[in-house]
Amino acid sequence: MKIAVLSGKGGTGKTTVSASLAYSLHNSQYVDCDVEEPNGNIFLKASLTEKEAVMVLNPVVNDDLCTGCGACQQACQFNAIAVINKKVMIFDNICHSCGACKIACPTGAISEVPREVGIIESNSSHTFMHGKLNLNEPLTIPVILQLRKKMNKYNHVIIDSAPGASCTVVSTIEDCDYCVLVTEPTPFGLHDLKIAIDLVKQLKLPFGVVVNKAMDSDTSIQVFCKEQNIDVLMELPYSKEIAKNYSKGILPVQYSNHYKDEFIKLLATIKERTS
């Protein structure tokens, strides 16, 4: 079973929830798909012995064959090519590696060469995996797709998504079995939760909500979920103890059996909802 943890708003506790869940379950794999800033290993402390480059294909032009006709520029849907004074300029980091320019070129002047855009690091058993996008690279998708190919070896795959509701998140969650939406009781938390709900509904994925930093004085999330008939799967309290340990890189499940049990229960709840 593949469970994706996402949030809409950043900083609500995706990593706390996903890493805690993976830590509490036997035979689970934690995959950090927040490839612009993976942070799960601050808590799970896996020894990253395996490294694998993420490569994309980018076009290069053979100037001897190129006539400067501009067909490649016309074909490019991503504005990654300019043709100036019959000379082709290619912008690698905007290129989506679709290959249209190569097909469009009437003289066969374009070939594709691999370029590294990121890296996948994992421990030897692959129970921990994360992707890291190279600095200055704007496209996260190739790294996420490569991570996705390496999932599924374990009973429970717990996916830590990037925040937001962009194509990065879509490509992270689109083939998972269940989505856990983590939020916090703030106006921003509620606002972005609604966006995340719209996203998972459009993708027709089953989902439930985890309220992190829950407090009696603000039940806006619980009220909203009740109105909308949305499952609140779990609440993690607003607690100085959790925050203090978190700042030292310790998850609640790593010092408290109570929380470990809560996360095991969370999985049971999810299984019940999806059966």
């Binding site: 504005n79 090519i81 300019a82 043709v83 905007i94 704007p138």
Partner: peptide
Amino acid sequence: KAAMEAGGAGIQAGQTII
């Protein structure tokens, strides 16, 4: 035409000026 493009607006706009 590039104003509303998802990416590469500057490249396309530069091409237009040229």
